[in-house]
């Protein structure tokens, strides 16, 4: 007999505040599993951001710092410069990273900070009640674009992975998803690589994870998975945008 799956030691016993079926729970679990498997739980400093991800520090069994909205990469920079041998990561949503925190995410990559960023993209502001994000898809109905995102008015959604991959200091950028078990297993591999490259001192890694927001999208959790697959992946293609070899 072998245990195929059990709750990671990287997770606390605290139940999450996430809405039923929100895939934040899957993504933070993958981070916990990777840190546990790499033996890093005791040597990691996490930086939580503002948004649904803010309470991550209640769920991950590691030391964490809550950051002001969009500033997690700056906070992580401060932490890493004090503790260059510790593992430092940020866990940020798209409202945080792709809107208010664009300067910080660009420059953490620009400096080639040896940190890992987990970027959870669900194309909406979840915590505040479903407003438009820079990542909201054309035509997607949100509370601040009730008729759907009008690209003539608000522009086309921002493709963060493609943007960050252009920066020399970014050594590993991949976009993954968690809409089915296979995608989840692959997402874990990508997150693992992000931390391994940090441990190897390669530079900045960003793993963008496409995620659902059933409540904000007004869909059932199961329908949200389908919506992600049919609408997000065509605009936000999955794949590796930068590898350490390319970064050289």
């Amino acid at each position: 007999m072998s245990v195929i799956f059990a709750k990671s030691k990287g997770l606390t016993d605290q139940e999450t505040h996430y809405c039923p079926g929100c895939t934040h729970g899957i993504i933070q679990r993958l981070v916990a599993e990777v840190l546990e498997e790499l033996g890093l739980l005791g040597d990691t400093i996490g930086c939580a951001a503002v948004g649904c991800s803010i309470l991550t520090y209640n769920y991950l069994n590691i030391d964490m710092i809550e950051s002001a909205h969009g500033r997690a990469p700056a906070v992580a920079t401060g932490a890493k410069r004090v503790h260059p041998n510790k593992t430092v990561f940020t866990y940020q949503g798209d409202g945080d990273l792709a809107s208010i925190g664009t300067a910080e995410i660009v420059h953490v990559a620009h400096r080639g900070e040896k940190i890992t960023t987990i970027f959870v993209n669900n194309a909406i502001y979840g915590m505040t009640g479903g407003q438009m994000a820079p990542t909201t898809l054309p035509g997607q109905k949100v509370t601040t674009a009730p008729g759907g995102r009008d690209v003539a008015h608000s522009g086309m959604p921002l493709k963060v992975s493609e943007m960050i991959a252009q920066i020399p200091g970014a050594v590993y950028v991949e976009r993954v998803s968690v809409h089915n078990p296979r995608a989840v297993r692959h997402a874990k591999k990508a997150i693992r690589k992000g931390f391994e490259y940090q441990m190897a001192g390669k530079g900045f890694s960003l793993i963008e994870v496409l995620s659902t927001c059933p409540t904000g999208w007004g869909l059932s959790p199961v329908d949200s998975l389908t919506w992600l697959q049919e609408n997000m992946i065509p605009y936000y293609p999955l794949g590796v945008f930068k590898t350490p070899e390319e970064a050289k």
């Binding site: 007999m1 996430y18 899957i26 078990p181 989840v184």
Partner: peptide, 29 residues
């Protein structure tokens, strides 16, 4: 015992065991 259910559980509510002796890869993987 493929573990797919647990992979998708956002709340880590599932524990999965497998009893097959061989290292066969279930089709679902």
């Amino acid at each position: 015992g493929c573990g797919n259910c647990a992979q998708m559980c956002p709340d880590s509510a599932l524990t999965v065991e497998r009893f097959t002796s061989k290292k066969e890869d279930p089709a679902c993987l």
